[in-house]
Design a protein around this nucleic acid. Structure first.
Lengths: 194, 194
DNA sequence: AAGCCTTGACTGAAATTTCAGTTCGATGGA
DNA sequence: TCCATCGAACTGAAATTTCAGTCAAGGCTT
């Protein structure tokens, strides 16, 4: 697990967080990982390969930390669970910052690089599903399509808030408050037919 | 108006939409504009100059098309106006695509480049204000801070939906529907105290 | 066990490519 | 004459990619 290959992927994550996907220089990565540039080509073929694998790596890691959430909350409190899962992404912890930054870069890069889109779509889909399910538990009266739509809105909003936070236009606490309010608004009774 | 300088700026906008700010190559720009590379340096000094002027150019253009919105809708229909203004940003028109793409690039770049943040914060602030005011008209019963928060949520959501659209993970019509629903949800009666 | 071969991880240095930016002589219109 | 423009050849720096070869571990053969 902690072989050089993985070290390189970890280092790549750090470099991406610092410089962005498009700012990643193979040599800077080599220095960061404490290996030669050649080793990087040995393992990943080319720069694009590094990027591809790193994005997979980040995705896996994000799955893992989303999976180990929810320290046994009250099973009745589905709404609390929902809040927790979403707010997990708005925290000033190195790992969260890394994942959010990398995720934002991935999204932004995908606008210009169709190669990245498939992986992105897959991850997004999984995430939206997960949130939709939590919404279903928090609001058993609602329909599945309504939950799916709300999940798309909440995750898209979270992405929007996240970039604003990371780009310094929105203080973390404020972002968290807006997200909590959005959940409240989505779960409010008397949802209108649109 | 249609001098070469402006041609170059228009071409730069197209190139940025295609390749991103960081993917803009001076020579590709020259080809796109149908001019020599020397002319670009003659007019803009260096690549950074091109970028600076192009972003100004895009901003001005965006202001213009936001200003000429609302073809005299019914003055009672504030909610309709709000919908229109927001949905303006989710349209498959070259100009809108260009502006949204450039905006997304700006946001994404600001994560790694603090220099861009001020301009960004200013523009965001203006925009949020404008939306908050429309919310105030659509929902006179609500308080100003509540409108401000809702405006932040709606604009952040719009940014999130916009990147998903541009990165090909969300069909345009679906994005528009989600946004309309979000407006409906925000304007629904019985907003909870959070 | 001694020698030999293979393989996978790894390196340093150098080749190659890619870009921004420069220079300069020439051209044609106001 | 001045200005905008072209074009094509260059430079220099930065970044990517290749390559020949080292090293250590593991097995196979005799």
């Amino acid at each position: 697990m902690s072989d050089r290959r993985t070290e390189i992927l970890k280092a790549a994550t750090r470099v991406i967080v610092r410089r962005g996907v498009r700012g990643l220089r193979v040599e800077e990565l080599a220095v960061e990982a404490g290996v030669s540039t050649s080793l990087i080509y040995y393992h990943f073929g080319d720069r694009a390969g590094v990027l591809r694998r790193t994005l997979e790596f980040i995705n896996d890691r994000a799955d893992r930390y989303t999976a180990e959430r929810l320290p046994d909350g009250d099973p009745d409190d589905a709404r609390g669970d929902l809040e927790q899962v979403l707010l997990l992404e708005l925290q000033d912890l190195a790992e969260v910052r890394e994942n959010s930054t990398a995720w934002g870069e991935l999204r932004a890069s995908a606008v210009f690089d169709p190669e990245l889109r498939e992986e992105l779509a897959r991850a997004t889909h999984t995430w939206v599903h997960e949130i939709a399910e939590l919404l279903g538990r928090a609001d058993p009266a609602g329909t599945a399509p309504a939950h799916a739509a709300a999940a798309e809105r909440l995750t898209a909003l979270l992405e929007g808030l996240s970039v604003r936070w990371l780009s310094g236009s929105l203080p973390l606490e404020h972002a968290r408050r807006l997200l909590r309010e959005a959940i409240a608004v989505e779960l409010a009774p008397g949802r209108p037919a649109v």
